[in-house]
Design a protein around this nucleic acid. Sequence first.
DNA 1: TAGGCCATCTGGTCCT
DNA 2: AGGACCAGATGGCCTA
Length: 173
Amino acid sequence: MSPNVRCATDDLGTPRHAGTLNRFSRTLRSPVNEDGDASEDSIKNLSRKPLTVTGGETCSIKQPKHKPRCEQSGQRGRRRMKANDRERHRMHNLNSALDALRNILPALPEDAKLTKIETLRFAHNYIWVDVAVCAGVALGMTELVPQLHHHPPEADINITVKVQFFIQTNSGT
DNA sequence: TAGGCCATCTGGTCCT
DNA sequence: AGGACCAGATGGCCTA
């Protein structure tokens, strides 16, 4: 089942998306593999240019951001570097999971890549409408099911609210 | 050029 | 003690 789910307009509250909803026509920002593997991206970013940073635990001078702020030596330094490594790996895993989620969402134009927040909101909407369709079928609201698939986002909100209301009002019978 | 998104570093907190 | 998780800070990249 692959309902024509769209992101609700109010789910994308950032000014960038407000009104236009043109995220699907956006060009691909980073060269992630077509398989959704972020490894290439990660490699690219690991080799980024040195950055500068202010402040720090014991260092107040500007230092490259993607290098340790302070000279990592001694046990403390080793622990910090190990922790950084784990954190990097953890975030890569998180990104892999997001890519997997992107891959199972309804097809998008090839040059579009949902951002993290868009992916989560899209998935949320996708699940919600899917549940609403199942509930509508189960409750005999067959006239609403096609609308769930074909109405614009604004209508989706109204319909899902209607379904929710219907479920609530009929749950006791 | 501003704003959005992102990766990374970092210190803090909680848990085992 | 060490690992997992989190949030803040920072700066690069990209698009409008």
